[in-house]
Write a protein that binds this DNA or RNA. Structure first.
Lengths: 114, 114
DNA sequence: TTGATTGTCAACCCCTTGGTTGAATGTGCT
DNA sequence: AGCACATTCAACCAAGGGGTTGACAATCAA
């Protein structure tokens, strides 16, 4: 995963696991405890605990305290970073942007040729 | 990384490395050979070759043949999948969508209460 | 044909990751 | 105090990732 100062890599790595993405999806519905989050999965509670630690280190979730519960909630900040990173590729996968991009490139080429 | 049929995990994993992201960035400027791509990095050519294989398996690049060269080009299709996945979280990180979302939720609540 | 260039394959190393089980910690209930 | 519940810590294991070096294949050029 390389240097720990590479936040974006940490975020992508955290997202590169279906269990963790499912946990995030669940958290879009609101806060949840570790047990809540673990329920749907056929793995041990400890495994889920580890997944949560990965998500927390990536900044994708924040955790509170309520007696013996550690409620988790979504923290979307890193997703904005991902979205920002994606922007530089948007013209390649977004049809509308692609045609706008082509249009502008053509325009520039024609102006340069004059 | 879990099952090989999990395309999205493969894509996120491929993106979770700064060297590979730098390679993708370079490819936005056009096709390039393995040597071209390797030049900026302080690692062996074989290491880059492995990175390219990861990107290829994730569908992020496609490779041609031209004599002894294997030109690489960007394939943005998986990035669209990532963007689609991100959409379900957009309301959490996009300010404008967040307020629109709140507005719609309030509206719905009020209608339910009547 | 011989040599130089481009790139991949194979074997190996070390470290990380996702999973396990078992023990420990912290907190509320009675 | 003692029990039950929620969660984490610790130790371990198998598998995979990113790196290396050395050998190999394929193609052009002399």
């Amino acid at each position: 995963m390389m240097a720990t100062n590479d936040r974006l890599s940490e975020v992508f790595a955290a997202l590169a696991d279906p269990t963790r993405r499912a946990i995030l999806a669940r958290l879009t519905e609101g806060e949840a405890t570790v047990n809540d989050l673990a329920a749907p999965f056929p793995v041990s509670l400890q495994a889920i605990s580890k997944h949560l630690k990965v998500l927390e280190r990536a900044g994708l979730i924040a955790r509170g305290r309520d007696a013996q519960w550690r409620p988790c909630r979504l923290d979307p900040a890193p997703l904005r970073d991902v979205a920002d990173w994606m922007e530089q590729y948007r013209r390649f996968w977004d049809e509308r942007y692609a045609s706008l991009d082509t249009y502008l490139k053509d325009l520039q080429t024609r102006e340069t040729e004059q």
